[in-house]
Design a protein around this nucleic acid. Structure first.
Lengths: 225, 225, 225, 225
DNA sequence: AATGAATGAGCCTTCATTCAT
DNA sequence: GATGAATGAAGGCTCATTCAT
């Protein structure tokens, strides 16, 4: 156990210094950004000496990159995306994809990790390459594959735009939640839980592709049937 | 306008110090963020004394807020949103709305102002209230009004989600362009110009609402006719 | 007066911040070396804010270079080296040269400046170029000129070596005083004041060149006659 | 020797950690000074754990002192100064002394050790006592003895000054080589090899004491014959 | 109205050192 | 005997801000 290994940890008793730094860094970068976060604060929260960041990560930037990597590892196991069985029809694959993506975006547990990744995506910088390569791109191509199956005759630009329409709908809840709450009130936005959003986005999307009844036609149950 | 809000600033007389500071601040905040931008750099670029920011805006934060306001004033005259004639059918209103929004998001001219506003939206803070009140909220309610006309029977949460689906599709191009280019290449993303995106989002949305043929059914011409 | 110009000097009342920094830096670098001296300490001694060094000199290294320049300016006005009248015989020129150099090396007033310069000479680095160009080289060439006049037939290497013999004798008192005192005691070394050393070096050198009676032959009076 | 002085060090067994640390420390201190050298760097170069310095020498300062001692042990076996046979005439003793000293100062082999010692001499501090006692003082007194034999009637201060004139000439080449090269060019200074310098200093000195023809009188051969 | 020298808090980093193993 | 993760003081420097002019 890493737990029994620590020699003289001063404050916390969770994982080792490096791990605690990673957690604390993730949180700090997530809600203050790279420039806004301070090494001092991160160390204090991690219960680690101020020299710890340089020691373990070579500096603030090193910690940032590792924190983003860690975030993607934590929050986004794309691998356990429930790979649909071979014969699964594409429509079902799309349903699953949407359900999974929405779930991720609404997961309250990984909020911190998610926020950090979103920040890096909105303003790609130090760690963008890693996030894109290991996390974003696979998902993007998975979606494109599904859509290609569904729309074999569509030209490339429109296929891309279609993918963006799907992803755009889902991402919106992550990227614009605070503003949405400011406009419509927290309660109204909170009402849109993962289940409702999954249903809605699935129905909206399938209808747009001619694979389901349009939104508004039959009251609910747009997700499965 | 902004003139009446100044606390203790000197008379503005054209491309004066205050104005240059506003421009320079807008640019700096847009591409480095609040923490990343420095007062010194902004003053240097504006050709203004280093004390200028404190003098004219009371401090860095003051300049930031004014810069965001200025950005919304510049880039987002929601007023000249071509108010459709009274009798316009809702579908047409939605078409116009989408066209206008996409145009704004793709406008290369107001890139700086747009970037600054997007930043503030992604991480609402110091100036979020102003942006939301004066720029975002009117648009959001306009869209909701249109959708309510189109879907009179839909319950509130689903109406909200539908609005988010429309806006999410459009915003995606602003909020995720750099990452998209990283994934699919700049060329592929650049191919999605305002016209194509307008067509696509309009078709996708109308189809989702049962007001147009689904995406992929007939080759193109989903936008105008 | 620079004296009346200071707006809000916190502690001292001498020259302005920049000047005080220069003095304090000179002292600190002189007796602790570049690495040993700290900006904080220098600022404290100068009664200047800690940001003063960066502000006025761009950083520690900038202050160092300026301090060395300042030292040479202060301690070594080679210009007022009493230029001998045109017809002065070379022997007299050499006498004057030695007297002047010894005087400089023994001057207790400019000890700090001298120490700083010696340090930089012993381990030429950041400011060596300046010191050599503006201070050392002119002196070196002046001496070589005098010796060339005295020894027209000597080959270059030996002329150089002769110059080094003259300078080496004089420099010794600056470069090795502390060690000398450790060996022979402070009293014995202090007994060698500027006058005695001038006499001695002059006699030793002139005798070596066959221009005076050898050391030890007649008790004293080796300097002038 | 140094072995009996260690406070709490482990048994030394050849090119062990302790020895490698000593070598690495010597090199680092020689060309960066005490403050400029870092324990980390020294340990890395010695292939020793970072705690090695504290462990073996009690700290950085301890290593420094031992390194200087080591340097004097390595580079300056004053013992094998070829003690002249009892009846050797003083002039010959002086010749030998000069030859030996110049040889030491020009020895390229012991450059590191020499540089370290020179540094400590120029700015006597932590290890000055040791160097002076074991290395410098014996030489100084040897020279004084020789000069006393040659100049039995000279008063003490002048005798001291005479010794300084001899040593000053020789030391110059060690203490001011870099600056000399800056002024006259590396080639010109390199031309002054040990042989030429020995010849020159010997001739210059003996002539100054009335024991040889003056410099410049007969072309060369002032050193040996 | 506008300046810019000066401020002091706070930044990230590096240092020699320690201590449980 | 030797290790290396962890320490905490101190390093140089940058920041937004102030104030006498």
């Amino acid at each position: 156990m890493a737990r029994t290994r620590r020699p003289a940890a001063p404050a916390a008793d969770g994982p080792d210094a490096r791990g605690r730094l990673l957690e604390a860094g993730q949180a700090a970068f997530a809600d203050r950004g790279f420039d806004g976060a301070t090494v001092r604060d991160i160390c204090r929260r991690a219960g680690v000496n101020i020299a710890g960041v340089t020691y373990h990560f070579g500096g603030k930037e090193g910690l940032y990159v590792e924190a983003v990597k860690h975030a993607h590892t934590c929050a986004a196991r794309m691998n356990d995306f429930p790979a649909p069985p071979p014969g699964t029809p594409p429509v079902e694959k799309l349903r699953v994809f949407i359900r999974e993506m929405v779930a991720r975006m609404h997961a309250p547990a990984s909020t911190t990790a998610m926020k950090l990744m979103m920040r890096e995506m909105a303003d790609p910088g130090r760690a963008a390459g890693v996030v894109v390569d290991e996390f974003i791109r696979p998902v993007a191509f998975a979606l494109r594959g599904i859509l290609r199956e569904l729309l074999p005759g569509l030209d490339e630009p429109r296929l891309l735009a279609t993918g963006f329409s799907v992803i755009g709908q889902i991402l919106f809840y992550r990227q614009n939640r605070p503003v949405s709450e400011l406009i419509f009130g927290k309660a109204a936005v909170d009402a849109l839980d993962a289940g409702l959003v999954t249903d809605h986005v699935t129905r909206f999307t399938l209808a747009a592709l001619g694979l389901a009844e349009p939104v508004g036609s039959s009251p609910r149950r747009g997700g499965t049937a």
